[in-house]
């Protein structure tokens, strides 16, 4: 009896990682067929065009180009991507922000199984294609405030421009996102998860229950309250006063 094998490519400039991933896929995933394993972004583009894979394992940082640069050179992306990177790589933030799938080197078998399982779940749903095209747009856009954040809500996916977010309030396993048009959205992420995603993007967690967007701060009152509008003040926790003041001063200086 024949069964469908997932057509897959490995693109990584480290020969050790290519061997390791190929061996793990061969040994533990009989339904994955590695069609080719190449060492550069340029060869990756050629192999994608030739083989039309369903799944690629793509190194974030290669000698000739980054994985994102390689993807942006393709006219159409109709495969799913699992990025491969190291724990300390600066791109991890971009990968997490854009909700993309990734594996840390050297590849852990449990994580690989999880990523392949997610690939099978995503197939035909198009979620990952949306996230990837969003990621490429965000990475190409130098203005962080215009970056799009894709979040899950109870009703489906929510896509927000960062500049539109005024502040966020945590509510146990959920968070309320307050937008500049006066509405609020409930998302299925904790405040801590959002704090991590929004790090270095002009947002600050000033209190155990609040994150503020510096862009919408109108003033900082008596070292206790952040004024976001005529009627909206957000408290700053006592232990964060000094740090917030330094952070906000640096933000203002950088914005001038």
């Amino acid at each position: 009896m024949s069964f469908h094998k997932i057509r897959c490519l490995i693109i990584d400039d480290d020969p050790f990682i290519r061997e390791l991933l190929q061996d793990k896929l061969d040994q533990y995933f009989p339904d994955i067929n590695v069609l080719s394993s190449v060492s550069s972004g340029k060869k990756g583009i050629e192999e994608i065009t030739k083989h039309k894979p369903e799944l690629i394992f793509l190194d974030v940082e290669m000698a000739d180009m980054t994985g994102f640069e390689m993807l942006s050179q393709l006219s159409k992306i109709n495969f799913q991507t699992i990025f491969i990177t190291s724990y300390s790589h600066y791109a991890i933030k971009a990968i997490r922000f854009n909700a993309l799938d990734y594996l840390l080197k050297p590849i852990d078998l449990g994580e690989l199984k999880g990523a392949v399982k997610r690939f099978k779940t995503y197939t035909n749903k198009g979620t990952q294609h949306v996230n990837l095209s969003l990621a490429l747009k965000n990475i190409a856009n130098k203005n962080v405030g215009d970056h799009l954040l894709n979040l899950k809500t109870q009703d489906g996916n929510l896509r927000l421009v960062l500049n539109d977010i005024v502040h966020i309030e945590g509510d146990r396993n959920y968070s309320y996102i307050y937008l500049k048009n006066g509405t609020k959205k409930l998302v299925t992420k904790t405040l801590m998860q959002l704090e991590e995603l929004l790090d270095s993007k002009g947002f600050y967690r000033c209190h155990k229950s609040h994150i503020v967007n510096a862009k919408h701060i109108t003033s900082y009152l008596n070292g206790n309250l952040i004024k976001l509008s005529e009627s909206l003040n957000i408290p700053v926790s006592r232990r964060k006063k000094k740090h917030f003041f330094d952070w906000y001063t640096a933000y203002q200086n950088a914005s001038q």
Binding site: D13, D14, F16, I17, L20, E61, S86, S88, K105, P106
Partner: peptide
């Protein structure tokens, strides 16, 4: 070093 690190860990 970044490139060598996975092999060293392995």
């Amino acid at each position: 070093l970044h490139q060598m690190s996975p092999q060293i860990q392995f």
